[in-house]
């Protein structure tokens, strides 16, 4: 067993440059939650199968549990905390509230980030495309129905 290193990482998180001290064995998820104090991204499985830790890294959807913190030097990260602009909720956030697309809410940050990545890529996805895209995000409460409707509604809102 070798000891890990302390590393200093600087990255832009939700538009703000942040520098933090990490262990070289921290994942981005661990760094966000335990070193930086941004706990919106959640740990559900820690191996890329539930999507609760979804964040955008340089505009690309990733599981933050499968990114090493050390890899983030110079990266641009968006978490659920960066979705709203000031008091203005993102249309996806509003749609999730209005459509009752959350019950316990633990998967919601991941679904919001993943849905944002979808709508950034394709503003007018079909139900099938939404379901396929979101298949990496598990929800155990809703049966997905209201989540799919919320994404459809937000997409419509964002197109108009």
């Amino acid at each position: 067993m070798t000891t890990d290193e302390r590393i200093v990482v600087t990255a832009t998180i939700n538009g703000e440059e942040r520098t933090w001290l990490s262990s070289s064995r921290d994942s981005l998820l661990e760094a966000l939650r335990e070193r930086i104090g941004l706990t919106g991204a959640k740990e559900g499985c820690n191996n890329g199968n539930c999507g609760a830790c979804s964040v955008l890294m340089d505009g690309r959807l990733v599981n933050s549990c499968l990114v090493m913190a050390a890899e983030c030097e110079g990266a641009n990260i968006t978490t659920v905390e960066g979705l709203a602009e000031g008091d203005e909720l993102h249309p996806l956030q509003t749609a999730f509230l209005e459509e009752a697309a959350l019950q316990c809410g633990i998967c919601t940050p991941g679904f919001l980030i993943s849905s944002k990545a979808l709508l950034d890529w394709k503003p007018n996805p079909s139900e099938e495309e939404i379901r396929f895209w979101l298949a990496g995000n598990l929800c155990r409460c809703t049966g997905y129905d209201k989540i799919i409707r919320a994404v459809e509604k937000a997409a419509e809102e964002m197109r108009s």
Binding site: G48, M57, N63
Partner: peptide, 9 residues
Amino acid sequence: IGGTAIQGR
């Protein structure tokens, strides 16, 4: 291969 988030990496 994996979910959409896996495919980003």
